[in-house]
Design a protein around this nucleic acid. Structure first.
Length: 300
RNA sequence: GCGCAGGUGGCGGAGUGGUCAAUCGCAAUUGGCUGUAAACCAAUCGCCCUAUGGGCUACGGGGGUUCAAAUCCCUCCCUGCGCA
């Protein structure tokens, strides 16, 4: 019998974190964050990281486990998350995976195993100089099969494929249909796009009031480069531009509102593919609780 | 009122007689993703259809020149700047 876990997914600003806390309190659970930016220490206001108070005593895992100066990865995430889940289960608590990074959620919930080839920064820097066409040609020589199905314009994907092929001789088939280690109940949080847009806007304002700009300034002061902040995306990307006087404050706010909305849509593109997700309105708590209760009672 | 500049698709902004339903950017919509995933990448984007082709309506309004106009001429309306 596989252990049961609950996954709370959905776009940014949909209210996942609060819901997860309510669920954890009700059913005796602990939360494993599935957010590729909240893993970093110091990225608090900008990522909307849950505060101690908001946690209401519910343990949260996979928050603040990395230094933002270094790159984190799904792979590290997966091994840490699996460990956390094991630990939670050993204490007879219910693991609740909660976050908007679909890739991270799936890595754990669907047990995706990625090729065991660590990033090679030197090779990457070298390959970054080349055009997508050249990279594609290079990959065709190394692994024609992979070259055929890969997005020929996406340099990031091409570089990783080359990195893998150079190390293993080819890019292994993706392990699809691999059995998950867990029985997963996916709950998707959604209240409509108008609601989400309004929520994004309001949340951005309150983040600014809460000192987000100063947080970014401090991070840079502590050595987080503008380049790295750009890479981190969204608030940190545009905050960095603002702090360098490349854009005005109102330009930053305007840009962020649309960028965050774009991000929410990308997240939905990912989640929509997963037909197991039960989409629910977070307002309808009792309905959600009932769904969870049924899931937990069910013999599997 | 005179002078100059200009009015182009949701916005910004090209084009200045034919190859223009109109470069490009933004927004919008949809989608992709094999260790960067808040990153990275792509498709669509006037309307209609028997849809790698065809039809219709469009470049402020109206009229004209021409085989052919967003592009030339006339006129009207509007906007900005300058002079009154």
């Amino acid at each position: 019998m596989k252990p049961k876990i609950i996954a709370i997914v959905g776009p940014t600003a949909s209210g996942k974190s609060d819901l997860a806390v309510q669920i954890a309190k009700k059913f005796g659970g602990e939360i494993i964050s599935a957010d590729s930016r909240q893993v970093y220490k110091g990225l608090n206001i900008g990522t909307g990281k849950i505060t101690k108070k908001e946690m209401q005593g519910v343990p949260h895992h996979l928050l603040d486990v990395a230094n933002p100066k270094n790159k984190f990865s799904v792979d590290i995430y997966k091994s840490l998350a699996d460990k956390a889940i094991e630990n939670i289960l050993s204490r007879n608590k219910i693991p609740i995976l909660c976050g908007g990074t679909g890739f991270y959620v799936d890595a754990v919930a669907k047990n995706i195993i990625l090729p065991d080839v660590p990033p090679n920064p030197i090779l990457r820097t070298k390959l970054e100089e080349l055009s997508a066409e050249k990279l594609c040609a290079m990959l065709t020589k190394l692994d024609p099969r992979r070259a055929k199905e890969i997005d020929p314009k996406n340099k990031v994907r091409l570089i990783r494929a080359i990195e893998i092929a150079k190390s293993l001789g080819h890019v292994p088939h993706l392990d699809v249909g691999r059995p998950s280690k867990y029985n997963v109940l996916y709950i998707g949080v959604w209240r409509g796009s108008d609601y989400l847009k309004a929520r994004i806007k309001a949340r951005l304002e309150s983040r600014i009031k809460a000192g987000m700009i100063n947080e970014a300034k401090k991070l840079h002061g502590k050595g987080l480069s503008w380049k790295r902040m750009h890479e981190l995306g969204l608030e940190y990307r545009y905050l960095a531009l603002y702090l360098q006087n490349k854009i005005t404050k109102s330009e930053m706010i305007e840009k962020l509102n649309t960028e965050i909305w774009h991000y929410a849509k990308r997240q939905m593109t990912w989640f929509k593919k997963n037909k197991e997700i039960v989409w629910m309105d977070p307002k309808k708590e009792s309905q959600i609780f009932k769904t969870i209760q049924d899931f937990l009672k069910r013999a599997m």
